[in-house]
Design a protein around this nucleic acid. Structure first.
Lengths: 207, 207
DNA sequence: TCTTTTTTATTGAACGTTCAATCAATAAAA
DNA sequence: TTTTATTGATTGAACGTTCAATAAAAAAGA
């Protein structure tokens, strides 16, 4: 039943099916036939719309990254106040929204994480995302902490977020989002409590 | 040149070559021919000593886990004092020794991490290891904190350790071990500072 | 309105490649 | 002579890609 304008529909279908397939069988056992069957289409269509398997995988990773970015942005727009603390909490929330912290998204993410160490395209995407998280955190911490302390806090919080998420992806019982968020909030507050004695150079907000 | 008692030698050779191959090309592109060539032997020998590729991969993961366990144990035996703080620092140190925090070990570990979500054998190994880390941390925190707080601290520190390590594995510049350890120590101390007002039930050490 | 033509969407068998596993053959020690 | 160690060509299965064939919608023509 060929209609016009199938491309965006098929692309969405196939990206979704890719995540489900990875969730089900792992990246290693995810074949294009499997993905196609799950999407209810033929295998040939993948090469048609994505140029090949690699194209589909890259598009899937892009989708996850863009969903994450959007989740963070959305929460940072509807903010109770403009305080660094609220901004940082919004970043944490966004990272634990992850557009539903579904098993399939987490597993797909982790699979790409491992795979990106050896595929230049994926590595670039991964790295850009890491830097964005770190630099967002750093910028907000700078409002309250001295440069070096802000960097340390940002590195620590980034590690905490990734670690919680990683362990959640692995755990048989899945990720307890509230508990994870609680631990991240907790780390955030202890870092913010570390008010510097040396004055910051540029930014000052309250107090 | 067949001599007797080749088995342990070949096993060590092949496990080492497996890590190097995964470091070089990633788990997905690690074939038995590649591993065998790197070890300077024929491909057939792998099935002979490990029963097949899967056997070699599982043995490699076991090796990494046992190296990690040994690194922790070693440091907990030569301890400056018996304080929970020193025990916990020893656990941190052991996790960041990781029998040389080499690129090849980190990449192999991460590859297995992703893969273990879909292979029952690897998943079991992974889970046992996770539980051991968590329960060690929990037990030591219990000396200073109430039950629920100890659990929280243990979960937080475990996430911090894994997160630091994960980001180190991904970073182009590699893992800065001293900095990572510093952040973990820091988290440890803020958690220990959280002395409970409610008395613990069983254990009491100092003050 | 009703054909005919063109365009877009999709299929799935065929092809070539890659890989893990097997095993008969070989060689050196015991 | 027996045992242990090792090789590497062969085999069969699985995979990604390609492409001729097909089918349905849209556009054009009558």
């Amino acid at each position: 039943m060929p209609k016009l304008g199938m491309e965006p529909i098929r692309r969405r279908q196939l990206i979704k099916a890719t995540m489900e397939a990875i969730d089900e069988a792992g990246l290693a056992d995810t074949t294009i036939v499997r993905i196609a069957r799950r999407a209810g289409v033929s295998a040939g269509i993948i090469s048609h719309y994505f140029g090949g398997k690699d194209g589909l995988l890259e598009a899937t990773m892009r989708q996850i990254l863009s969903d994450l970015g959007e989740a963070v942005t959305r929460r940072r727009q509807a903010l109770p106040s403009d305080s660094p603390r609220d901004h940082l909490r919004a970043i944490i929330d966004g990272n634990f929204d992850r557009s539903q912290v579904s098993q399939s998204v987490m597993k797909t993410w982790l699979a790409f994480w491992a795979s990106s160490m050896h595929k230049r395209d994926l590595q670039r995407l991964q790295h850009v995302n890491d830097r964005r998280l770190y630099s967002n955190l750093c910028h907000q911490f700078r409002h309250c902490l001295a440069k070096e302390e802000a960097r340390q806090a940002a590195r620590g919080l980034a590690a905490m977020i990734d670690g919680l998420w990683l362990r959640g992806a692995m755990a048989p019982e899945g990720l307890d989002v509230d508990r994870a968020r609680g631990l991240a909030y907790d780390y955030l507050d202890t870092q913010l409590a570390r008010r510097t004695t040396t004055r910051q150079t540029t930014v000052t907000t309250n107090d």
